[in-house]
Amino acid sequence: MQLLYPEIKPFARHDLAVEAPHVLYVDESGQEDGLPVVFIHGGPGGGCDNLSRRFFDPSIYRIITFDQRGAGRSTPHASLENNTTAALIEDMEALRIHLGIDKWVLFGGSWGSTLALAYAQAHPDRVLGMILRGIFLCRDEDIHWFYQEGASRIFPDYWENYQALIPEAERDDMVAAYYRRLTGDDEICQMHAARAWSGWEGCCATLRPSAQLVDRFTESRRALAMARIECHYFINQSFLEPDQLLRNMPKIAHIPGIIVHGRYDMVCPLDNAHALHQRWPGSELQIIRDAGHAASEPGIADALVRATQSMARQLLKLAPEAE
């Protein structure tokens, strides 16, 4: 198994003011003149952490991580104001220009794969390549599978905890029921809803149960941002047109891509990656046989590190021993 790269400290940090009231947290690590790669976190609302930098060889890559609107260390925390997919695409362009980057590699997982595809389709001439994990196409059936019926039949015990917060009369639309609580005025109710929403995702994200991951997902500050922003997006069809990402694949079919997806991903089932690969014949699809959804799972992490090495070789014409 390929280990993650050691932890490194950023060489630069930025506060990027975008559309009011949002200010994005950004940092850079690795080589100042290296191959630019932007880490696009999941959720939406998940934020970046020290792990985000460890998929990339710091002697080759200029590693950019940023927290999307309302997420992580960006401010205001958990804000839904002016928070849409189109706005996040604009933020990425503003960040690219701010950092003086002509073209970059996109690295995104789960919602990060969604945003990477949407950005690339809007700005195909700014993308060198893409490494995408745990593909999430944000179709109605994808939301229904995880938040209404589907995964509930695989994890009925975890689902019981998720639906316990919602009265039976409201359970025909769980996203709407949670949205009312996550955007209501009762802060205690809001936090209970946030921890239940995020806890459900954390429990289902790995093939083998991970108490550490569940604890991370249910930490109060992270849970509030992720639950509020995810629910805001999903009740609004992720601010995408029906089938938008697949329909627009011809715009980016020429861009090299590596898709990594767990065989037993219960958050974003494998049909997401399979459908994307069919519309992107030049892409490489790697199905990880002993993994679920999380980037922290050994098989997924190994494949992602190897993918960043492969992408660097392809784009920089490096010899194999450069790994």
Rank of each mutant, 00 (worst) to 15 (best):
L245G: 02
N83Q: 14
C268W: 04
A12W: 03
V260S: 01
E297Q: 07
D173K: 07
H144E: 05
F56R: 00
H41P: 02
P250S: 06
A177I: 03
I166F: 04
M130E: 01
F39Q: 09
R247K: 05
P320E: 03
F107N: 01
L51D: 14
N236L: 04
R306I: 07
L80N: 10
A169M: 07
E230A: 13
I40P: 00
N272V: 08
G109H: 05
P21E: 09
I8L: 08
Q237D: 14
R247G: 07
L245C: 15
H77M: 08
R181C: 00
L213P: 03
P250D: 07
G199K: 03
I235G: 04
Q148L: 05
H22P: 08
E81L: 09
L276K: 00
P36H: 11
T84E: 10
W280P: 00
A20N: 06
A177C: 12
A193C: 04
F55I: 11
F217C: 03
F56C: 02
H98L: 07
E160Q: 13
D140V: 13
H293L: 07
A312F: 01
Q309W: 05
D67F: 02
L165M: 11
W197N: 01
Q244Y: 06
I300A: 04
A223Q: 10
P58A: 14
R171Q: 08
R263V: 12
I188V: 15
A194Y: 01
H144W: 10
D215P: 11
G112F: 01
R153W: 09
R62H: 04
R289V: 05
A118H: 01
A322P: 13
A273M: 09
I252T: 02
R126Y: 06
L106Y: 02
W159R: 02
G282S: 12
R180S: 10
S198N: 04
E149T: 09
C204K: 00
Y61W: 14
L137S: 00
G34F: 02
D173E: 12
S198K: 02
F39R: 05
Q309A: 12
D185M: 06
H277Y: 14
E81F: 15
E81S: 13
S220R: 04
V260Y: 02
I64F: 00
N83F: 02
Y264V: 13
M1P: 15
P167D: 02
Q244E: 13
L128T: 10
Y264G: 11
I8W: 15
A194Q: 03
L318R: 00
H14E: 10
H232T: 05
D33H: 09
L213F: 10
A291G: 02
S110R: 03
R171T: 11
E323I: 12
E187Y: 06
N236G: 10
D15Y: 08
D125Y: 12
L3C: 15
L88Q: 07
A20W: 11
E201M: 07
H22C: 05
K9E: 15
H261N: 15
D15K: 13
A253E: 08
L304E: 01
A12P: 06
L270A: 08
Q309E: 12
N50T: 10
D215S: 15
L88W: 05
